[in-house]
Write a protein that binds this DNA or RNA. Structure first.
Length: 356
DNA sequence: CGTCCACCGGAAAATAGGGAGG
DNA sequence: CCTCCCTATTTTCCGGTGGACG
């Protein structure tokens, strides 16, 4: 049993490649928005792109291009889903001071206002979680700050206009940037690049990558899948090995996504996965009942139905489940839930692997 | 045309924690 | 230590929804 993994880093989602593949136009647009000659006022930007299109990488890469006269901050709205948490994080990044809990929001806002005497660029990644949980107060505050440009990033909202108050949007007025999903050949190229950096030379079959690329355009899924295959490989990642570990790879992706959430999120997801075996939509009430039973089996105190309703929305925002909302009608007011079929067009006996 | 499905989702309150000043 | 302020998480409460069925 030989290990074909030399350096695991490039196969993880936190790995930031020095060069992004096929995102030059977007990098261009970003630089334009912040070009020195566009008046004195910094421009706000909203970046939209489905999961696994390289939003976070693009924006992090972009932050490194600023001269030292500009301060940059990066915060993700997923763990930091309240105004308070984001402000706390920003203060820590800007001034190094660590504020605990228990202070007034207005107090943190005042301290932050004092801290941004230099030009500052603030990125709020996965902003949909912040908006869902705590509304747009923070966005209103930040976009009205002097010397500060805000870059919001979302995998779910193409525009934030319908999501925030009019007064917030009017001070935000972002330039909107959209990332399109990668094409299969781009996915293959990106995965090949990562594999070359992480694995032994010649250890990945070309058709193995094609198989992944033909199944998903989400790079994060692709990476998990490839990594899972590489970990299981004896001496090479073959196409059949990739087929073999397909569901394990996706499971690893789910686990990675849910790692930032509570064990109840995980339990809830597992519950739906079980109910979804027959691929029929299931309504939220039934999901809650099954969840409660599951808790009873494991001796865990279940959360309330209202709370779980919010957690279902989280899973939906993560792109793990699909929900059809019924606001009344014969079915009453409810949601029909289903796992996302991420590998819908998985070719069971495929002969049309793209080759070039 | 009235009724009913079934829980969405807003609001308030309960609970548990921390910080600052007396 | 007490008091009074804050945030965070979860529970409790409940009005409201609209198409199909009778």
């Amino acid at each position: 049993m030989t290990d074909i993994i030399d350096t695991p880093d490039p196969l993880t989602r936190t790995y930031l490649p020095a060069q992004l593949i096929d995102r030059e136009p977007e990098q261009e647009t970003l630089s334009e928005a912040f070009a020195a000659d566009t008046e004195t006022r910094l421009q706000h930007v909203h970046l939209y792109g489905p999961r696994g299109t390289g939003k976070t990488h693009l924006v992090k890469q972009f932050l490194t291009t600023f001269p030292s006269t500009v301060t940059t901050c990066y915060v993700s709205g997923r763990p930091h889903d309240t105004q308070y948490k984001v402000l706390e994080r920003l203060l820590q990044q800007l001034t190094g001071e660590h504020v605990g809990t228990g202070h007034h929001i207005a107090d943190l806002q005042r301290r932050l206002r004092d801290a941004v005497n230099l030009e500052t660029v603030v990125v709020i990644d996965e902003v949909e979680f912040l908006l869902l949980n705590d509304g747009d107060d923070l966005l209103y505050f930040l976009t009205r700050l002097e010397n500060t440009a805000v870059i919001t990033v979302s995998a779910t909202h193409r525009s934030l206009e319908p999501e925030v108050d009019d007064r917030t949007y009017s001070s935000f007025q972002p330039r909107v940037l959209t990332l399109n999903p990668y094409t299969p050949s781009q996915v293959r190229q990106i995965l090949a690049d990562r594999a070359r950096r992480a694995l032994e030379p010649q250890s990945v079959e070309r058709t193995a990558l094609s198989r992944i690329a033909a199944t998903t355009s989400n790079i994060a899924i692709g990476l998990c899948w490839l990594r899972t295959a590489a970990e299981a490989a004896d001496d090479a990642v073959t196409r059949s090995l990739v087929d073999e570990v397909q569901s394990t790879g996706y499971a690893a992706y789910v686990t990675e996504l849910l790692a930032d959430f509570t064990p109840h999120h995980r339990r809830l997801y597992d519950t739906i996965e079980l109910l979804d075996r027959d691929r029929n939509p299931v309504i939220s009430g039934a999901v809650y009942e099954a969840y409660r039973d599951r808790c009873a089996d494991t001796g865990v105190e279940p959360l309330s139905e209202r709370r779980i309703s919010d957690f279902l929305t989280h899973l939906e925002l993560l792109g793990l489940i699909e929900a059809t909302y019924h606001y009344g009608g014969r079915k009453g007011k409810t949601r029909e839930l289903q796992l996302v079929d991420w590998d819908e067009d998985t070719p069971s006996s495929d002969s049309s692997s793209e080759e070039r």
